[in-house]
Amino acid sequence: MEQFLYAAEVVVNGLMAGVMYALVALGFVLIYKASGVFNYAQGVMALFAALTLVGLQNGQVPFAHMINATFGTHLDTFGWTLPAIVAIALTALVMVGLAIAIEKLVLKHLVNQVPIILFMATIGLAWFLEGLGDVMWGADIKMLDVGVPKGASEALMTVTEQWTGYGFYIDRLDIWAAAIAAMLVAALMVFSQYTKQGRALRAVADDHQAALSVGISLRFIWVLVWSIAGFVALVAGIMWGSKSGVQFSLSLIALKALPVLMLGGFTSIPGAIVGGLIIGVGEKLFEFYVGPLVGGATENWFAYVLALIFLVFRPQGLFGEKIIERV
């Protein structure tokens, strides 16, 4: 019985971890679905968004190091702080600005190029954004507090203690992440099904040429989809940054999104969620039962092996569109 309860706790925590992975994977899906581009920079976008949010919240002077080194000044902060909600709104605007800049400076010049060229452009973009974030906001680890609670959920622990005799541990931040992910997916669904821009986005995703022939602006759709992906990156950055501070290793969370995408499919929003949950639960259970027998630290290994197995039997992933090439 005790082992069963432990395993149940591992499963619940695995589901919660899966939601966190799915938050990152969603941004990849949006851009891939609309433009066929695998955005290597999605993890760095989450980092850049989180850095910008903390910087705005704390009233930090952007590029302070560079300005001080050039002009011999001692700038650090503006001396004011912003409420979390205002800082989040401003950061979202910065991400829209970034989307416009990416479209104007990069994507516009690569129309009709093969996907691998666009993919390589996103690699360049990732390095550029990482450097820009460093120069703008500095390399220090920053505390992010937007009011999301952290730590064990007392209520859940008490209830499960009463029911089962074992108090389950779930981090309140993970519960919030699950709720936010659910709202995000619902909002994305409503947007794509019931708004004009959403329908245009789906049309472009289905067939670029046909969408263009009915007057849909491809450039506008690219700005729109990169803006939404930027917002999703901001949400992912907030949740991961709240966990252990905003720091440059945040960009590595993209590593956890890859197997989720391979499993759920690169073109499906529900696929990102389901893929995240399967990876989260699978890796935690594997570590729980098999980890101790093979020396542990199996989570990343397991996630990629599971994704590989899925690729062999279902290359398009669980929910992805079947790839049919007519000759």
Binding site: V10, M16, K243, K256, E283, E299
Partner: peptide, 12 residues
């Protein structure tokens, strides 16, 4: 052990 590439996630 904690996976060197995934140090942020230590639930297990």
């Amino acid at each position: 052990p904690v996976d060197a590439a995934a140090g942020q996630e230590q639930k297990s």
